[in-house]
Amino acid sequence: MTAWLLDPEVLHLNHGSFGATPAVVLEAQQRIRTRIEANPTRFFLEGEYQERLDCTRHAVAQFVGADPAGLVFVSNATAGVNSVLRSLEPSLMPGDEILVTDHEYNACANAAVVTASRAGAVVTTVAVPFPLENRSEVVDAVLGAVTDRTRVLLIDAVTSATGLVMPVDELVAQLEPDVRVLVDAAHAPGMVDFDVTELGASYVTANCHKWMCSAKGAAFLWVRPDRRDGVHHAVVSHGCNGGWPSQGGHLHAQFDWTGTHDPSAWLTVSDALAAVEAMHPDGWPGVKAAIRELCLGGRDVLIEALGIDPAAPADMIGAIASVPLPPADHSGSAIFDPLMAALRERHGIEVPVFTWPAPPDRVLRISAHLYNRQSDYDRLAEALKAELR
């Protein structure tokens, strides 16, 4: 735990919500901030900012299999989704459809609703079963909802509430280029093998502050070459008329400078990649294998404790997994179940318990990263038995 600043008095099983940043990365971020504050004019106007940003961009692009020309930084995956959807509004006609699943992250589903309302389009929500037995149930459900008016599919690479690794590769292969696929890969890089170019989707956005463990506020958006000219930042700024930067292509002009902000989280993503890679003798492949093994082992412990069957096959699990809990309709409106607070206050365990998909149904979601141990999930199982008896 010494590599992290996490409170040792709390059992942290919720990496998936906000990530956790190694201490050395936060130290690097503070050095960048100090450098900026020493002379902001020099840093931003004499090329240092752009040079550092381009270096970081190349490191992230290499990590996710992207070309740097198509990769830009945003504050989080939700911002990336919003920028793409706002850019698509002029091309949508009344009656056109944006497709989402009922596992879609709420913030991004909201963005789809707002875009549809502006364009006179509609959002169609596809019901994907949970529990489920195989990937084909997702593929069949989504493809079965596609019509001749479907223009966009917005889909998670790894779902937030249910922790499913979705078959986005199969869906992209079936739908592109007729239906543009926007992949919300908030959880994917650093958790599962993920190559955006090989995937072939029109748009991919993902967080760096989750499984890549950067400082909070770092994410990227990648756009396929044939879609780049049509994408603009949701914040209109200097790049719209070539004001900043003067070179680097359309996407970089739109996203690299949208006004004064703290870019330190972006500029230390490469530090995070190096820090986490060094935590395992096999580097990033070893990290991903280790955290997945932890998660699957933890899920097995919970399944046995609850006396239930697995809610999804192992090949749809990365480093987060959800297990259904006995129904408990406490408030009818709260997103987080009171059991979450009970586990924190009485057992010192930080783990999310969601009302999902609607009361009285709920799920508990575990995460795994290198600061976790298998015994952590044994402790959670015992706490659950005490709270659910």
Rank of each mutant, 00 (worst) to 15 (best):
D7C: 14
P22R: 14
A23T: 15
A23R: 15
V24P: 05
I32S: 01
I32R: 00
I32V: 15
N39E: 11
R42G: 05
R42W: 11
L53G: 07
T56D: 12
R57P: 03
A61H: 09
A61R: 11
A69F: 06
G80N: 08
V84H: 02
S87P: 05
E89M: 11
N110V: 00
V113Y: 03
S117K: 12
A121P: 06
V122S: 12
L132D: 04
N134G: 09
V139A: 12
R149F: 00
A161D: 10
G163S: 13
V165Q: 08
E170F: 03
D178V: 10
A185T: 01
V192Y: 04
D195Y: 06
T197G: 10
C208E: 04
G217K: 05
V223Q: 07
D229P: 06
H250R: 10
H252I: 07
H252T: 13
W257Q: 03
T258F: 00
T260Q: 07
H261N: 04
P263R: 04
D271A: 15
D271R: 13
G298Y: 03
D309S: 15
D309Y: 06
A319H: 10
P324N: 12
H330F: 13
A334W: 09
G348D: 05
D361Y: 09
V363G: 07
A368Y: 05
K385C: 12
R389T: 13
